[in-house]
Amino acid sequence: MSSVIEQSVQARMVASAPRMETLPATLHYDLGDPFAVRMVFPAPATLEGAEVSWEFSRDLLASGIDAPAGLGDVRVRPFGYDRTVLEFHALEGIAMVHVRTSELRRFLKRAEELVPVGGEDRFMDLDRDLAELLGGAA
């Protein structure tokens, strides 16, 4: 079984214009960091012309599907019957994208099959994490 899950999703950028632009994004879940999810937007989909990656907790994504969640740089909330809004807050502004809730649920189910919720600590490599934190001095 692979230790990494990747799933492409279609995100719809919310803008002031009435038409929402669809852009590709990829969700990542890695056994090496079992608490986190990454959402990556490819270079052509960003204003800077460079790939942009946001990392946030798996719990935040799971909670935000059913009720507003998050107070920091990433916030997640349901929108209507079949969409979830992810808000990414940065110094440059706020990016809001809609993703089909069913795609997020499928991704979270695959992640839970790899690492059950509540069992993340069994997959942590504390020695490696401590060494990284101390700059390899451990």
Rank of each mutant, 00 (worst) to 15 (best):
M1T: 10
M1Q: 10
S2H: 14
S2L: 11
S3T: 14
S3V: 09
I5H: 03
E6G: 03
S8D: 08
S8H: 12
V9F: 05
Q10S: 13
Q10Y: 06
A11F: 02
M13W: 02
M13Q: 06
V14N: 02
A15M: 11
A17N: 12
P18Y: 02
R19Q: 11
E21Q: 15
T22E: 15
L23V: 12
L23F: 06
P24C: 15
A25L: 02
T26F: 03
H28A: 07
Y29A: 05
D30N: 14
G32I: 00
D33C: 07
A36T: 12
R38I: 02
R38A: 09
R38S: 09
M39V: 10
M39F: 03
V40S: 11
V40R: 08
F41Y: 04
P42M: 09
P42E: 11
P42L: 14
A43R: 11
P44R: 08
A45Y: 01
A45D: 05
T46V: 10
L47I: 09
E48H: 09
E48V: 10
G49C: 04
A50M: 08
A50G: 05
V52A: 11
S53G: 11
S53L: 12
S53K: 14
W54R: 10
F56H: 04
S57M: 10
R58S: 02
D59L: 07
L61C: 00
A62M: 03
S63H: 07
A67Y: 06
A67T: 07
A69I: 01
G70L: 04
G70Y: 08
G72W: 15
V74Y: 00
R75T: 06
R77P: 04
F79K: 08
F79N: 07
G80H: 10
D82R: 09
D82T: 10
R83A: 09
R83E: 09
R83P: 00
T84Q: 01
T84I: 00
E87S: 12
F88K: 03
F88M: 13
A90E: 13
A90G: 14
G93S: 09
M96Y: 01
M96L: 11
V97E: 02
V97G: 05
R100N: 09
S102W: 03
F107K: 03
L108N: 06
K109S: 12
R110A: 14
A111S: 13
E113D: 14
V115N: 01
P116F: 00
V117M: 09
V117L: 08
G118V: 08
G119M: 00
E120T: 06
D121S: 12
D121K: 04
M124A: 09
D127I: 09
R128V: 06
D129T: 11
D129E: 15
L133G: 08
L134H: 13
L134G: 15
G135P: 01
A137S: 05
A138E: 13
A138N: 15
